[in-house]
Design a protein around this nucleic acid. Structure first.
Length: 517
DNA sequence: TTCCGACAGTGGGGTCGCAAT
DNA sequence: ATTGCGACCCCACTATCGGAA
């Protein structure tokens, strides 16, 4: 065993082995074995690496920066620590000439790596390790390696916001150290997420007594206030405090002084109706001239949950009790609009609430069990979102060769609607919704319609009609009609339809009068 | 034995900011 | 000034494993 000088080749070997097995239990065992070998101060490197992530986060290195392949080293020499030091240096490069300098450092690293190590590093740098194990499997491996109960490790990770500090503590001090991870104001926790349901009735049927809340099409935000200090975090726990001063002010106006709230920020018009997601996202993404951005597109926080008040951790309380705290803390307009139903016999009322929500211009609803605790970081089925689905019959104009498990299959479809002149206008692409059987079938069928194959995109005669589901229309500068479909996915092929029967751009635009191309 | 929850994989479009052109 | 790239918002859906029922 290499004490304190674990080689990168060891990680590359384990990653390859993990990728080669399909059994999750075996993946966990392989990771656990490696984690046991890591020193406490190597753990914060080894564990994210084997979870498919870099401890530094993104480094400004993508496929273009990686450039051409570099001749691999003959023998493994890179250590985990050495690699990490080099990548830390790479991440700190900025200013003029930085792209070239990053490329040089990447080249240096790759040149020192064996072919196996290069493959592993490539996966890490591009975020595509494809070993069938990410954070969740690594958490299990960490639990197995240290003898800590998996549920307690998961909880610590959700409270810490990431795997690394938990890994460091566990490897250094063992399972008792998990108790040091508590909900702390100022330290963001992984947010609770929702599953999908196809109707409100179905959702209420599954959850029983529940709240039905408006689903706002904005940006998720976690607000931490400790006295005058307010911090704002996104769904991935990025700190966006500096970008949303009006949200900070709103948090300071509340009478309680220590709390953690969960909600959405959204740009609303003068009439209180939501502005487009594109406008909200643009505003939240603006960092340079925040004052001008806030002037042009002010946003409002709308809260739906409270995780902590005055140092009381509310995570394990049932939602009904957390909401009572929320109602005490946050006045009406800053709280999400909702209705409470007692169970399936109230499904009609819930459906009516959805209809009203849509009339107010919102995205849909989230149906939430009144009993459920806040299970951060885990996709519990106690929150179910329901959004209306639109469908269209479109024509396949081209398809792209797939990657990974879709290698050799035509996967990503280019979708077109009919135009007035008898041609087709591309509206976007989709790779979603296909079963393996559909992938196989469409690969064969599209090959028979192929007109050109540049090795990436196969252009086909526009004859195959496909039914596409989508969430809505949005403006686009990329596509000729000036619009594109949001979250397009395949429902089924319509071999009973000829391309002349496909939907037109005109009818699509007419169905979404609020969108101006 | 069957069912179902959790997970990973497969990428989609838009917007912003920075560096390069 | 414009373009290209990368990061990060939003996200749907299927396949699979393995524990629950």
């Amino acid at each position: 065993m290499h004490h304190g000088c674990m080689l990168l080749s060891r990680l590359a070997d384990v990653s390859r082995e993990v990728a080669a097995t399909s059994a999750r239990s075996r993946k966990i065992a392989l990771l656990a074995e490696l984690f046991r070998e890591a020193e406490a101060d190597e753990a914060p490197i080894v564990i994210p690496y084997l979870a498919g992530r870099l401890p530094q986060g993104r480094l400004g290195v993508g496929w273009k920066t990686l450039g051409r392949p570099v001749a691999p080293a003959a023998a493994p020499a890179l250590t985990v620590r050495g690699t990490d030091a080099l990548l830390t240096a790479l991440g700190s490069v900025s200013g003029p000439g930085s792209q070239a300098e990053r490329a040089r450092l990447v080249g240096e690293l790759m040149g020192a790596a064996t072919a196996e190590e290069q493959h592993f590093l490539l996966g890490l740098l591009t975020g595509e390790v494809r070993q069938g194990a990410l954070d969740a499997v690594a958490v299990e491996g960490l639990a197995q390696a240290t003898g800590a109960p998996p549920a307690e490790v998961r909880r610590a990770v959700m409270l810490a916001g990431s795997l690394q500090p938990v890994a460091r503590a566990l490897l250094a001090d063992g399972p008792p150290s998990l108790k040091t991870f508590r909900l702390t104001v100022g330290r963001p926790v992984l947010p609770m997420l929702a599953h999908s349901a196809s109707s409100v009735t179905e959702a209420v049927g599954k959850l029983g007594a529940c709240a039905v809340e408006e689903k706002l099409d904005g940006i998720r935000v976690q607000v931490h206030r400790d006295g005058d200090d307010v911090r704002l975090y996104t769904r991935t726990l990025d700190d966006i405090t500096d970008r949303l001063p009006e949200v900070t002010s709103a948090a300071r106006e509340l009478t309680e002084r220590r709390f953690v709230l969960d909600g959405e920020v959204i740009a609303l018009g003068e009439d209180g109706r939501p502005r487009s997601f594109q406008e909200t996202a643009g505003r939240v993404g603006s960092r340079v001239d925040v004052t001008a951005a806030a002037e042009a597109v002010p946003v409002s926080p709308v809260f739906f949950d409270v995780l902590s008040v005055d140092d009381r951790d509310l995570l394990d309380l049932p939602f009904a009790e957390r909401h009572a705290e929320l109602a005490r803390l946050v006045p009406e307009p800053m709280r999400v609009r909702r209705t409470v139903v007692t169970g399936p016999q109230d499904a009609t009322a819930a459906e009516e609430f959805l209809a009203e929500t849509l009339l107010r211009g919102h995205e849909g609803v989230v149906v939430k069990s009144l009993d459920a605790p806040y299970s951060a970081g885990r996709r519990g089925a106690s929150w179910l979102k329901v959004k209306p689905v639109h469908t269209l019959d479109l024509v396949v104009l081209a398809a792209e060769w797939g990657h990974g498990r879709r290698t050799g299959k035509l996967s990503n479809l280019h979708l077109g609607a009919r135009t007035a002149d008898g041609g087709f206008a591309m509206l976007g692409k989709t790779f979603k919704g296909m079963t393996d059987a559909m992938l196989t079938w469409q690969t064969g069928h599209l090959k028979s319609l192929a007109e050109r194959d540049d090795g990436h995109v196969v252009t086909v005669r526009p004859e195959l009609v496909v039914e596409i589901a989508y969430d809505g229309l949005q403006r686009s500068t990329r596509y000729p009609a000036g619009v594109t479909l949001r979250f397009a996915r395949v429902v089924r092929y319509r071999q009973d339809k000829r391309p002349e029967e496909a939907d037109t751009v005109q009818t699509l635009l007419a169905a979404h009068p609020e969108v101006h191309p």
